[in-house]
Structures are given as structure tokens and as C-alpha cells.
Amino acid sequence: MRKPRHLSAEERALWDRVAERATPLHADRDLPKPDAQPVQKPKKTLVLHDPIPDFRVGQKADMARTHDVMRPLVDRLAVAPVNMDNKSFGKMKRGKLKPEARIDLHGMTMAEAHPELVAFILGSQSMGHRLVLVITGKGKDRDDGGPIPTRFGVLRHQVPQWLALPPLSQAILQVTPAHLKHGGHGAYYVYLRRNR
């Protein structure tokens, strides 16, 4: 067994200074001396603390503040360049042009909706249709309360992205939210290019 090491005079003076300034955690116990033999530890007493209050992750977050770095989808579509005849575009936005075909994706999952949308758009273009209506629905009207905010209307936000990517982008001239009589923000007018 090794011999215990004793404190030097400097170490002892340093220890005394620290001990004088320290506030004991338990005032009813004596502080052990550094050179003293280990003292038998007293039995632990159970200290009951106040219970942690119920909480929900994100309860203090400002839920009114949006975390999207991009502008809302409706705003982006509103400032998109007009690629079609201005007169026809104005009529379309006012709901004066009647869609020649429509598809309702409302209630579908993204995995179901994407192939249906591709088949519908390409099929409509091959039949010579110019204006079609894509109904997505407005989406749920509230967040599910999880720690990660969920976007309202997944299909409503995803469909314009699908329309901007191949193979659909080559078939489309213009995308804009539908007029209220055709579904408003829960639907899109898709103006197709002429089939060549």
C-alpha cells in the first residue's frame, strides 16, 4: 500500500484560502481537512424537489412567425413572368377561361399524386388541351403541434415544383392559382404549350 502524500506548506496555505471563501453545500456537515483520515460518510437523506412542471416542446416559440426563407408560393407565382398572351392570361386569372380538363389530387399522398399529375399533364397536352385545372386542396388548416413545424397543404406547395421540373416543364407555358370559382388557392390553372 502506498504512503499517503502530505501537502506542502504552499499547498496547505492555498487550501486554507479556498476553504475560507467557499460556501458549504451542507452547513450541518464539517469540511474535511486535507491531511485528515477519511471520515465515515453519513447516510444519504432523500431530498424531495418540486416536480418539474408539465411542458410542451416549443410552447414559448412564436408560432405566428414563419420560418420559411422563401416568399409564400402565391407571391412567387404572382411575380412569375407571363409566358403566354397577356390578354388570355388576364382572362384566365379572372376565371373567364374554362378549363378543358381537370384532375383532383385532393386527399392523395405525394407518392400517389406525382405519377397521376405527370400522366394527366402529358395526356392533356397530347389531346391538344390548352388550359387544365389541377386541384390540390388547401391542405390542413393547423399545425399538428410537433417540434418541427409542418407546412400547410403539402400538395399545394409540391405541385408547382413538380410542374417546373422535367418532363412536365417542357409541356407547360404558365402556372397560376385558380380563380375562386375554380377552387382559389386550392387549385392551379396550368396553361399548356401546343403539342408539336
Results as ranks from 00 to 15, higher is better:
residue 2 R to G: 08
residue 4 P to E: 02
residue 4 P to D: 09
residue 6 H to T: 13
residue 7 L to F: 12
residue 10 E to C: 00
residue 11 E to V: 04
residue 12 R to L: 12
residue 16 D to N: 09
residue 17 R to P: 04
residue 17 R to Y: 13
residue 19 A to T: 15
residue 20 E to I: 10
residue 22 A to C: 14
residue 23 T to N: 15
residue 26 H to S: 11
residue 27 A to D: 13
residue 29 R to E: 11
residue 31 L to F: 05
residue 36 A to F: 09
residue 37 Q to H: 11
residue 39 V to Q: 12
residue 40 Q to L: 03
residue 40 Q to P: 14
residue 41 K to G: 07
residue 42 P to I: 03
residue 42 P to H: 02
residue 43 K to C: 06
residue 44 K to N: 11
residue 45 T to G: 09
residue 45 T to S: 05
residue 45 T to D: 07
residue 48 L to R: 13
residue 51 P to V: 05
residue 52 I to W: 08
residue 54 D to N: 12
residue 56 R to E: 13
residue 56 R to V: 11
residue 57 V to H: 05
residue 57 V to K: 07
residue 58 G to H: 02
residue 64 A to M: 00
residue 68 D to L: 08
residue 69 V to D: 14
residue 70 M to T: 11
residue 70 M to F: 14
residue 70 M to C: 15
residue 70 M to G: 11
residue 71 R to S: 13
residue 72 P to A: 01
residue 72 P to Q: 08
residue 72 P to M: 03
residue 73 L to P: 00
residue 73 L to G: 03
residue 73 L to Q: 06
residue 76 R to Q: 06
residue 80 A to R: 10
residue 81 P to R: 15
residue 83 N to C: 08
residue 85 D to S: 10
residue 86 N to C: 03
residue 88 S to D: 10
residue 89 F to V: 00
residue 90 G to I: 04
residue 91 K to P: 07
residue 92 M to T: 13
residue 92 M to N: 07
residue 95 G to W: 04
residue 97 L to W: 04
residue 98 K to W: 05
residue 98 K to I: 13
residue 101 A to R: 03
residue 101 A to T: 00
residue 102 R to I: 01
residue 103 I to S: 01
residue 103 I to L: 10
residue 107 G to D: 10
residue 108 M to S: 12
residue 111 A to M: 09
residue 111 A to K: 13
residue 113 A to M: 04
residue 113 A to C: 02
residue 116 E to K: 12
residue 118 V to S: 02
residue 120 F to C: 02
residue 121 I to E: 02
residue 122 L to Y: 01
residue 125 Q to A: 08
residue 125 Q to H: 10
residue 125 Q to I: 08
residue 127 M to Y: 07
residue 127 M to R: 08
residue 130 R to G: 00
residue 131 L to F: 03
residue 131 L to A: 07
residue 134 V to R: 02
residue 134 V to N: 00
residue 138 K to H: 12
residue 139 G to F: 01
residue 140 K to Y: 04
residue 141 D to T: 14
residue 141 D to P: 11
residue 142 R to E: 05
residue 142 R to D: 06
residue 146 G to S: 15
residue 150 T to I: 08
residue 151 R to A: 11
residue 154 V to F: 14
residue 154 V to S: 14
residue 157 H to P: 04
residue 158 Q to W: 03
residue 159 V to Y: 01
residue 161 Q to K: 06
residue 162 W to I: 03
residue 162 W to T: 00
residue 165 L to M: 05
residue 168 L to M: 06
residue 168 L to A: 02
residue 169 S to V: 05
residue 172 I to R: 00
residue 173 L to G: 08
residue 174 Q to T: 05
residue 177 P to A: 13
residue 178 A to V: 12
residue 180 L to Y: 06
residue 180 L to P: 07
residue 181 K to G: 06
residue 181 K to W: 03
residue 182 H to D: 11
residue 183 G to H: 04
residue 187 A to M: 06
residue 190 V to D: 01
residue 190 V to T: 04
residue 193 R to D: 03
residue 194 R to N: 06
residue 195 N to E: 07
residue 196 R to A: 14
residue 196 R to S: 09
residue 196 R to F: 09
